[in-house]
Simulated assay, not measured.
Amino acid sequence: MVVDDHPMWRDAVGRDLESAGLELVATAADGPSAVARARATRPDVLVLDLNLPGLDGVGVTAAVTASLPDTRVLILSASGEQQHVLDAVKGGASGYLVKSASSDELLAAVRAVAAGETVFTPGLAGLVLGEYGRQDADGPRLTERETEILRLVAKGLGSKQIAERLVLSHRTVQNHTQNTLRKLQLHNRAQLVRYAMERGLAD
């Protein structure tokens, strides 16, 4: 599903997705319509602008992720402002691209988000991660390896990329990620990213 208040941009993104073989189930031009149509069509991925009339993209993200936990939200915004990225991720977004991204980058991001990965325009994740405070002293105890993998997840790397960087098997990385989710009582990688941002785990 594609949500943008500019008809030409909305149509262009929809065409790009359909031409790549993806099914476009709905579009919307404002926040309230976006929430209603998402609940009606239950898309796998919601490609969402931040600047919307009626309800902004962060509000739409929060409403959709609360009622449709299987729908992933990918923000596609003209803004690369640090606070906007942070607000979107805290609202539950699984990814954030700026509109200067190419069609190929957008398609790759949609597929990655649909597969449960997190995606950021290069450079944005590091900016956001630097904003947050220290890890809770009395929080759940993660092993050094779990913390290392959590930092890389927070930077938007997928399991295969993490496995290559740390010279581990793909299965090992997935096992560590699942262990971390269980310890932190979280449910998906987007929540892991949010946890890491809130605790400054990229210092």
Rank of each mutant, 00 (worst) to 15 (best):
L107R: 04
D138V: 09
K160S: 13
A137F: 14
A154M: 06
A137S: 12
E117Q: 13
S100E: 05
S67P: 08
I149S: 03
S102D: 03
I75C: 01
I75W: 00
Q135M: 13
S169R: 10
R165E: 11
G91E: 06
T143M: 08
S169D: 13
A78N: 06
V98E: 01
G92S: 04
L127W: 07
Q178T: 12
P140G: 13
L127C: 05
I162S: 08
L76E: 00
T143I: 11
T177Q: 08
S94L: 03
G156Q: 06
S100L: 12
L107E: 00
G126L: 09
N179Y: 07
S79T: 11
R145P: 04
S159T: 12
L152M: 05
Y96F: 14
E81H: 13
V128I: 05
E117C: 08
E146W: 09
Q82Y: 10
D70S: 14
A115H: 04
G123C: 06
Q83F: 07
D87M: 07
R141P: 09
L150M: 00
V64T: 00
V173D: 03
G139R: 10
T121E: 05
E131S: 14
K155G: 03
T65N: 01
L74I: 02
T65D: 06
S94H: 13
Q174P: 10
T172Q: 14
G139W: 10
K155V: 15
G123S: 10
S169N: 07
P140T: 07
L86S: 02
A137L: 15
R145G: 12
G158C: 05
G116V: 04
L68T: 02
L181M: 07
D104N: 01
T71E: 01
R141E: 14
T118E: 02
A109S: 09
L166P: 02
E164C: 10
T65I: 00
E164F: 10
G130V: 14
A154F: 01
E117R: 04
